[in-house]
Nucleic acid binder design. Structure first.
Lengths: 242, 242
DNA sequence: CCAAGTATACTTGTATACAAGTATTATAAA
DNA sequence: TTTATAATACTTGTATACAAGTATACTTGG
């Protein structure tokens, strides 16, 4: 008998999502968390049976995951690629790239509204930490950066964000869940980083921005470790479906 | 009676593509060329009838175009967004961003094989010009830049490329078709630019790369004009379906 | 025991069917 | 004439059906 596994992805974030999106979100979490191992082969029929839906939304989900480079669509089944440490470094390459670009644009425009909005989000993050709500914290963290990116109204930079966001969100979600329990003090540093970021935007200080961005980036190494912890935690005492 | 319109997208490039991909490629061309005007509303049923396929591949195509920001999926029908001058500028922002990033990586690795490959592609481009084959030229032009990007083996930079490529390809295709007839001499300059680019990679000369990239970028203004010419050419003497 | 060929149980891609919801249009009442 | 209501003709989202192709496993002949 295999133990029933709860959803990894917060269901309340999916209030008005289609079945395909739900399946994609859940599969994404299962792949990134290591619950579904890389190399595994997913069949549409099997997934449809597992999720108790038809093949239509499953196909939709697989297309999404394929665009995110988490799986590779082949003739016979979708091969799980998974998320390696290299992938995470690469995602942060891209983040660094686009957020630097965004900052250069921000320098040229009025950012007072943006700063206000970011301050609000930061306060939300603090509350989330106070109540040890890793999911809410992750949501706000991602929203923080998305808000910055949206500020410059650049649809193609936004597109890059949209394409990397889901994987990043899942990754952050998983590592924060571990960290909020086992490395609670980390969050002070994260908050500090974000305050620095806001300050950089407010004062349009390029150096400060680079500094805060890189601190954020350095923080990733720890996050990678946490992902592995997360993967082991998940496997602990849970039987896997065949 | 409405005049039968040929395919805008080269059919031979779709040898092993699915129906959904074909429809996406064709619709993309129709949208970017202005044949389908922005603001138009596409219904899955109508498209299925037009293309003589079922709704499944149509849905697939619409998802693709939506990810490319060419349409916006809404409750009732997909609204055509189209490609504005701003979009094209933004695409080139992204190209500049990622190709600069790629160049920084190229400096650190052996690029002799890459240079050879690029030289080959460049010769193909010259032949295409000689025979006034705009489609072949566009194919090689896009391949040229893709080859450079692939050289650094960065899956997320590659992902950004994959996401912008289709729109760029369609745009280049349309403008080259006009230019090869009406501005044949332009192509000397384009070839020159690419030679400069190869030279920059060979000598790992950052300044030269920036120069050739920006020359490429400056060239875009002309391309935008050509797109409008292309749109008018297409409308000339052709009746549009209701 | 081994090899070749065939049957079978998969796979995806596309077409069709059905359900639920929305905008529009026509009708009826004031 | 105007407004409210109801019928209708759309829309998408999901489920199911069918077709074509592929890998596997078995069977049959040597």
């Amino acid at each position: 008998m295999t133990e029933k596994k709860d959803f990894l992805y917060p269901q309340k974030w999916l209030s008005k999502a289609s079945t395909g999106d739900r399946v994609a979100s859940e599969l994404r979490m299962q792949i990134i968390s290591g619950w579904i191992e890389s190399g595994a082969i997913l069949s549409e029929n099997k997934l449809a049976a597992d999720f108790n839906v038809s093949r239509s939304p499953i196909r939709e989900a697989l297309k999404i995951l394929s665009a995110e480079n988490l799986i590779r669509l082949e003739r016979m089944g979708a091969v799980v690629i998974g998320l390696t440490e290299k992938d995470i470094e690469e995602i942060y390459d891209v983040r660094l790239l686009i957020e630097s670009f965004v900052f250069e644009r921000l320098i040229k425009i009025d950012t007072s509204n943006l700063v206000t909005e970011l301050s609000k989000i930061l306060e939300m993050m603090k509350i989330a930490i106070k109540y040890k709500d890793a999911d809410e914290f992750s949501l706000q963290d991602v929203l923080f950066h998305e808000t910055i990116i949206r500020a410059i109204n650049h649809s193609y930079i936004k597109m890059i964000w949209d394409n990397t966001k889901p994987v990043m969100e899942a990754f952050i979600l998983l590592s924060m869940r571990v960290r909020i329990e086992e490395k609670y003090e980390d969050f002070d540093r994260i908050i500090e980083n974000h305050e620095l970021y806001i300050e950089a935007i407010k004062t349009k200080n390029r150096e400060l921005m680079v500094k805060s961005l890189h601190q954020n980036f350095d923080d990733v190494q720890g996050k990678v470790d946490d992902l592995w912890i997360s993967q082991q935690t998940l496997s602990r005492g849970v039987e896997k479906n065949d």
